[in-house]
């Protein structure tokens, strides 16, 4: 039996997808269109993408050129460093090909205007103040149906001038569902229009293959530390190539 479920929680976030009971067959509709977004949501998301492209003239660099296409038809968890409040909108815009759902701090949904706009986009609220299982369940639904996620595993902006430690929760989905983690390094200061182009370096996927006798949480820690090391190295590469943009004092 397949349950068609529309998820509109208290934050009215824009996730409409077909959920199937464990062990049930995937129906045609689920295979065809696993993650749906309202028409207005799609239009608004497109508007945001155009605005991001106009304002920040993003430069998207792939570590391996084949990645651009290879990532398109598979579920993955993009993880990136977090330097600015724009990162969510920027990441969602430049990775538009993969339609990732961005994990957004729940407190943003409580802001009257911004919260409303976030709710139209492909975003999932996450409560960082307490153990939150709601985001995990939603993210599982998305990944099981072929969707992708964009997570900032630092859990906040690097305010003290250095990249913070990546939290393992971000890799839990990857560990449990054998979905690869794609490390991304965001580089730049979001200088609008004529300033330095905002860059993103998309790394090679880190495949997830949790051994059968290992707990997902333990494997998630291993995965996230690999991803963190990759993001730091990739950021360093960008800094060497384009010069230090002074986002971090050290990285």
């Amino acid at each position: 039996m397949t349950i068609e479920k529309t998820v509109y929680n208290e934050y009215n976030y824009n996730v409409v997808f077909c959920m199937q009971k464990r062990g049930d067959r995937v129906n045609e509709q689920t295979e065809k269109s696993p993650v749906k977004q309202s028409l207005w949501g799609k239009f608004f998301q497109m508007l945001i993408t155009w605005t991001v492209y106009f304002l920040f003239r993003p430069k998207i660099i792939y570590e391996d050129k084949t990645l651009k296409k290879a990532l398109k038809n598979r579920s993955c968890v993009f993880v990136a460093n977090h330097t600015h409040h724009f990162d969510g909108a920027y990441g969602g815009a430049v990775l538009w090909r993969y339609k990732p759902y961005v994990l957004v701090k729940k407190s943003w949904y409580e802001k009257p205007r911004t919260g409303k706009m976030i709710s139209w986009c492909r975003c999932i609220p996450i409560n960082l103040d307490e153990a939150d299982g709601e985001w995990f369940k939603t993210a599982e639904g998305i990944v099981e149906n072929g969707g992708s996620l964009l997570i900032f595993p630092e859990g906040g902006i690097a305010r003290e001038g250095h990249m913070q430690e990546f939290k393992a929760g971000a890799a839990l989905i990857s560990a449990k569902h054998a979905v690869p983690i794609v490390p991304c390094a965001i580089f730049g200061t979001y200088s609008p229009v004529f300033g330095m182009r905002q860059k993103i370096l998309v790394g090679k996927p880190i495949e997830s293959n949790c051994p059968p006798d290992m707990r997902h949480s333990k494997y998630a820690r291993e995965l996230i530390s690999k991803a963190e090391a990759r993001v730091r190295a990739m950021y360093r590469e960008l800094a060497d190539k384009y010069g230090d943009c002074e986002t971090y004092k050290e990285f």
Binding site: E130, A131, D132, G133, E134, F136, K137, S217
Partner: peptide, 18 residues
Amino acid sequence: SIEIIAGIDSLFGVQMTG
């Protein structure tokens, strides 16, 4: 605990967040 909360929610529809 994230997996436990998600599992309980799926099994019984009970939210344990917080």
